[in-house]
């Protein structure tokens, strides 16, 4: 067995999670399929959101899947990188805004 946690071929086996718990897997995949259909947002717009979220949650499977999907749906390299920057800005902002909490605590205890 390869000595690493992530294997790109495992993405193709995602559906196998139903082997251990089929009803919940079915519910999840039905929901997943519905989420990505055209709605108030297009399938293409949802793909770019998924790409950004994939980076934010740092899921290598999702990054693989939605890099391909977003490019196939017509987004340019620049647009895709801007989406990644949006994810980075939100993640960075999420860290930094906690700096206010740090400041509050320090101000509470400092003389």
């Amino acid at each position: 067995m390869a000595n690493h946690y992530y294997n790109s071929e495992d993405l193709g086996k995602f559906g196998n999670i139903g082997e251990y718990q089929k009803p919940l897997a079915d519910k999840f995949f039905d929901y997943y399929g519905e989420v990505f259909k055209n709605g108030a947002l297009t399938e293409k717009e949802k793909s770019l959101i998924a790409l950004a979220v994939a980076h934010a949650v740092q899921c290598p499977y999702c990054i693989d899947a939605y890099s391909a999907d977003a490019y196939e749906k017509g987004y340019s390299q620049q647009q895709m990188m801007e989406a990644v920057h949006v994810a980075a800005a939100i993640k960075g902002g999420a860290v930094l805004v906690h700096g206010v909490q740090m400041m509050n605590k320090v101000k509470e205890i400092a003389m």
Partner: peptide, 17 residues
């Protein structure tokens, strides 16, 4: 036709875009 190693997305969505 795709400029790369992938299949075309939805023809209807592409036409609109």
């Amino acid at each position: 036709n795709p400029a790369g190693a992938f299949l075309p997305p939805s023809q209807a969505a592409l036409e609109t875009e």
